[in-house]
Design a protein around this nucleic acid. Sequence first.
DNA 1: GGGAGTCGTAAAAATAGCGTTAAAAGACAG
DNA 2: CTGTCTTTTAACGCTATTTTTACGACTCCC
Lengths: 241, 241
Amino acid sequence: MTVSTKNREKPCILIIDDEPQIRHFLRISLKTEGYELLEAENGETGLGLCARHSPDLVILDLGLPDMDGSDVLAALREWSSAPVIILSVRDRELEKVKALDLGANDYVTKPFGVDELLARVRTQLRNLDRSNRRSTDAMVIFDDGTLRIDLSMRKITVNGDPIKLTPKEFAVLKILMLASGKIVTQSQLLKDIWGPTHTKDTHYLRILIGRLRQKLGDDPTEQQYIQTEQGVGYRFMELDG
Amino acid sequence: MTVSTKNREKPCILIIDDEPQIRHFLRISLKTEGYELLEAENGETGLGLCARHSPDLVILDLGLPDMDGSDVLAALREWSSAPVIILSVRDRELEKVKALDLGANDYVTKPFGVDELLARVRTQLRNLDRSNRRSTDAMVIFDDGTLRIDLSMRKITVNGDPIKLTPKEFAVLKILMLASGKIVTQSQLLKDIWGPTHTKDTHYLRILIGRLRQKLGDDPTEQQYIQTEQGVGYRFMELDG
DNA sequence: GGGAGTCGTAAAAATAGCGTTAAAAGACAG
DNA sequence: CTGTCTTTTAACGCTATTTTTACGACTCCC
């Protein structure tokens, strides 16, 4: 199974920016500071890189060719809690508020000074040390050879065959997977997906979990990916052969 | 480090700024957002307030009458890890780098937009939530080589073999384990698990404790994990083999 | 030593929770 | 408007869990 463990010597930074000269510029600056670098020139590959390598920090340009920067950020925040520094030519307040409330950790307007950016990078990484390093690595891509779940791409395959999940099915699977190993209570799932007014309607869950298991190929007679803890909730577990 | 128990309804923000109109301005904006406020017009009182109330966030103006803003920040960071947002009229890069490297979490240049500042405040408080909640995640694990109880994972193993506990069994074991060594009275257990109307139905407990001991491999002829205190209650004890 | 109260075990009965199926209702794109 | 995909509703069998019932054993105290 691929678990992206963050046991790195150097902090790893992912740059998502389409302008080559900016990337070059950042590359020079950040490398001399001793960071490991990943680069992407569009949102698609950026999300992919982030999912596979789970960097310690993401520097994201809002003006990307393939998709809107906000959408990249929103997609990222679906499953990643890595700090994100937004770069943008736009200095409008509304843009900043929107990005910050979407989950960005800082917003820097171009043109910017290198030293300031580097200081802001250090600041974010400092926070990371305190809170994130210890926390369990968010598993974005699960792959045990049979089942493959890529939360960033929203793609599930069983033995290579792509599986179609409905929005609610995917939402449940995502929550279970991000809490991998831990059980998630029924009321938690119901509250997160059906809203706080349906925390008692466990039959919704039963049928949805049923369909999910069917699609994932869970065999009731053997150990299954989604395990039931009667009266409590469900848990996603890697099958140990 | 001073661990202040921050069980507040509203997040508390400390403003350190000498200009009355800025304070007024911030007060209006932040109060309408539902924050608790503390105010200081110089570094001295600011540090004092921070020490006494340990706010969730500090907004610090660099231009103070009594002492240099950097010194206030440095003094603060000696013992506090609360996020700090710097306000300053100076837009020079060196100032920003210095402040951020001293431990500030953000740097906003005056004049600034309210909405942006509020968004940055939310961002910092969001980070706080994350780091605090995770640390409070009581990771209580008992493990003496034979029996292993992981409350957060809700997993029990005896000699490596996973044990299935029913909800009530787990609830009893959890209570006993969290009071490890101490006696928990029968009526306490009955009240916590069966509700206050069943504090006399001790036979429920007897039978449940019986099943629990069986599952944990407790041997009545030897010292057992769950010990009976006749007429009083039960206690969970580590076996000193 | 004997009786009252307390505890432990075993089995049966009752209840609650889970998984599944099928059909109806709703949402949504062409 | 129509057909398809998704969600909701309803119903049933099954299993796990809890409760009931019954009985033997132990302890404390006189």
